[in-house]
Design a protein around this nucleic acid. Structure first.
Lengths: 143, 143
DNA sequence: ATTATAAAAGATATGTATGTCCGAAATATG
DNA sequence: CATATTTCGGACATACATATCTTTTATAAT
């Protein structure tokens, strides 16, 4: 469903949300080790998120990545859209250009509820929402 | 969701199911042109399906690909499992190895029921079931 | 038998996602 | 100001999916 890059990015951002309080910053190295993704690779993804104002960063000593209050209110789907593009929820699972509710492909109706559940969960839950769930042990980021 | 290979394979098999009646055979070239996939590429996929007894073939003049009655009763999910592997429906959407009902990732509970219904739909609907739907204009393979 | 046809099989090529490396820019600290 | 730290940016490397090309094998028809 999602590329590895999106999986890594969501994991990294949620780790950030849980571990950086206020202006406290988190090193790319810490994130890399915790989520078991190469430092240079996750760093690139995080830089992309910074450029698009989904997360924040500071260079130099005491620098690192962190989240502003505004960052925390961003829906998770923005991460997916940025990295994998907006089409992944919309394009036909069989690759047919004409597939839609009126002229569905054979799998369309079977898959639509699944896709819709995923889409709305990502659209209506913010970074902070998921972080709260994890803090309250309602869900987990166990590797 | 699915690899291009799976998309191509499902399209090709359903085209076969609809267009080969009885022992009438269909050329790789015809399938290639109809579903707009390079002949050598779709041929390889079809050969793989033949080796695993999902479809049937005959070489030489009057040869081609076709479906036996047994082939037609095969669930669509067998094509997906063969080409993309069995894990694609089972592994965590966030790539977490420990994700399950007891220790769910943040997305797990929001999508599990829908994912499961998709899985069972592909498990219980055969090649013929989907072909029938198309013949009855309940669904379409329009490019 | 010979020929034409078509799948099967193997080898090679291309493209995209993933992963790595190195130097530049920014900045806190002494 | 000098130094250490850390993100940033570009270039490079690797792996895997996708695509192509060539040869071999099987077989129907003449």
């Amino acid at each position: 469903m999602f590329s590895n890059s999106v999986k890594y990015a969501i994991n990294a951002v949620l780790y950030l949300a849980i571990n950086s309080k206020g202006s406290e910053k988190i090193l790319a190295r810490d994130i890399s080790e915790t989520i078991s993704v190469p430092k240079a690779y996750i760093a690139k993804l995080l830089q992309d998120l910074v450029r698009h104002n989904i997360i924040s960063s500071a260079r130099g000593p005491k620098g690192g990545f962190y989240l502003t209050e505004a960052n925390r209110k961003i829906p998770i789907i923005r991460i997916v859209e940025l990295i994998d593009g907006e089409e992944i929820f919309k394009s036909c699972v069989l690759g047919l250009s004409q597939c839609n509710d009126a002229k569905p492909c054979p799998l369309h109706e079977k898959i639509s509820p699944y896709r819709w559940s995923l889409l709305t969960a990502l659209e209506y839950n913010t970074i902070q929402d998921f972080a709260d769930e994890i803090i309250q042990s309602k869900s987990y980021l166990a590797q």
